[in-house]
Amino acid sequence: MLRSKYTIQKFMKIAFSGLISLSFLLILILSASQSCFAQEDEFANDPVAGTFETGLLGETQTTVTPYAGEFEMHIQHRFGLIENGLEDVFGIYATSNIRMGLNYGITPKFMLGYGYTKEFKLQEFQGKYRVFTQTESNSIPVSVALYGNLSINSQDKLVFGNDYAFSDRLGYFSQIIVAHKFNDKISLQFAPSFTHFNKTDSLVEHDKIALTLSGRAKVTPSMSVFFEYDQPLNIDDMREYTNSDQTDPEANLTFGMEIGTSTHVFQVFMSNYEGITPQRNILYNKNKIGDGDFLVGFNILVRF
């Protein structure tokens, strides 16, 4: 009885993530046929501008990269869970996580970046390349970017147990991001990803495929609201260990607001993720949406 209930729950999770992918594709097909930017003018083949405010939206990457020669400094902060209420003022006085990073636009479509995160003393190197950019006439209907992140856990080697090797410290995250700007106000993106850790905690799988759907809607010319949903695919047929479902990562929901100016972007949101680094978030998140395990986070981005 318990087993069948469990199977139904699993099936529902997989069906839900499938539904997300399908609905995104459907929306894309519909919008491409409508051609929101349909203008038979000299702008027709120009790339669309401002699909998203910046390369980061809450917890996920977007198809946007810094301009060639431009630096982008990131300050990302996550407070503790809000569950304790006034005791720690909704997580503000709880243990927090912070990341500081710097991205640099090498070409208008290619960026490299470095960052460090407080939890697990992660040193990160990342790169993003925008393969396609959506055009005004929708002759190219989507922007597509490839994103890769390599994290190095720089904690003491005792943490890694016996038979330590440097490669135990490494975690990888790769993602293909597909975004569509519907009009000046609404943009949506879908991003499947693959996470791999060389060494994980006991019974935690080394690989994980996840799907991310995110979008933003402008409320005023400089303020937007946004959301993000991340679903790790915990599929039984892909399991490395038979009992690893005990350590399955949880899905994430992020929602918040964003204010963009010429040189700064501010994002304040609620999220289930506390790891900041994408591979930690995807593989190790234990905060459940249904249990209300949310925390307050903010991102500050400075361009110069």
């Binding site: 005023t220 010319p221 100016t261």
Partner: peptide, 23 residues
């Protein structure tokens, strides 16, 4: 100026102005 001075053209301009010029 190749862009029509219609509502859509003006609204896009407002977004750009509010982001880069307003301050």
């Amino acid at each position: 100026n190749p862009l029509a001075k219609d509502a859509a053209g003006v609204n896009t301009g407002k977004m750009v102005y509010m982001k880069h010029c307003r301050s």
